[in-house]
């Protein structure tokens, strides 16, 4: 683990506030996430989930507060961090191949001017194999399905061989195979002591996939181990009236495995079936 002090938090956010033009989109958010944890960020649309990730990564100016990655500012720890943007944020008709996109994960390590070489491509191929995409390495990216696009992005982040991963809605609109592949990958990363922060929509799968959860709605409603904070009361606070709690199978305790929250269309689909 690159000589990282495992005592310090992997990600420590204090009093983070972000404002667009005239209104705050994140207000006074705190987080102290221990290493080796899988954390979901959940909250209604416009809660600032993506903003939080982008602010942590320095992609948005922050109004106040501080972000530390393993005890140091992000700019010093860039090599420890990998980012998986939303799939829809790029033009998939861009003239490039899957392997080429994944190789981009090496650009940070290469620095200015240097071109990726054979070694970098080999690393990219390894990452593609991990997401089960190595047979598609030469494919033009416009010919990929949504799930394959997502796996390409994941492979690109894997190539960075980071310690902390930020993923913006990796489960958005992917097929069941990809979803399983991503979950397996997350568990593999955790087993290797990595930390993963995932913007997530499907409340139902939170207890199954993640160790930690942050409930966010402009302010941090709660953050901590799923068993402690993923409660009906906290969800109600996060989603306001918009959340409908359908039947508590066998009286859901804390951990809320039985809470079927219909907070998003995605979750609603499964709840309604």
């Amino acid at each position: 683990m690159n000589g990282i002090d495992t005592e310090t938090c992997a990600v420590e956010v204090t009093d983070l506030t972000v404002a667009y033009a005239n209104k705050p989109v994140l207000w006074d958010v705190d987080l102290a996430l221990p290493g080796g944890t899988l954390m979901a960020i959940v909250g209604p649309n416009g809660a600032g989930k993506t903003t939080l990730i982008k602010a942590i990564l320095g992609l948005l100016p922050i109004a106040a507060g501080q972000v530390l990655i393993y005890g140091k500012p992000y700019t010093d720890q860039r090599k420890l961090v990998a980012y998986v943007p939303q799939r829809g944020s790029v033009d998939w008709d861009f003239p490039t191949s899957v392997l080429d996109v994944v190789t981009m994960g090496r650009y940070g390590a290469l620095g200015w001017f240097k071109r990726p070489g054979k070694d970098d491509q080999a690393l990219a191929m390894d990452a593609l194999a991990k997401v089960g995409m190595d047979h598609l390495a030469d494919r033009q990216i416009s010919q990929l399905s949504g799930g394959q696009q997502q796996r390409t992005f994941l492979a690109r982040a894997l190539v960075q061989d980071a310690d902390v991963y930020f993923m913006d809605e990796p489960f958005q609109g992917v097929d069941a195979t990809t979803e399983r592949a991503i979950v397996a990958l997350l568990q593999e990363l955790r087993a290797a002591g990595k930390t993963v922060i995932v913007v997530h929509h499907d409340l139902q799968t939170v207890p199954e996939y993640f160790d930690w959860v942050m409930l966010l709605n402009v302010r941090r409603i709660a953050a901590g181990p799923v068993a402690d904070v993923f409660t009906e009361a906290n969800l109600r606070k996060t989603y306001g009236g918009r959340v409908a709690f359908m039947g508590k199978n066998g009286g859901a305790g804390p951990g809320a495995a039985g809470v079927q929250a219909v907070a998003t269309p995605e979750a609603g689909r499964t709840g309604g079936g």
């Binding site: 009093d15 404002a19 033009a21 005239n22 705050p24 006074d28 109004a63 106040a64």
Partner: peptide, 18 residues
């Protein structure tokens, strides 16, 4: 100027909440 004013108001609000 609105941004500047908001920055102060914003900072003040943060301080007050704290």
């Amino acid at each position: 100027s609105r941004r500047r004013r908001q920055r102060w108001e914003f900072a003040q609000a943060m301080l007050l909440i704290h």
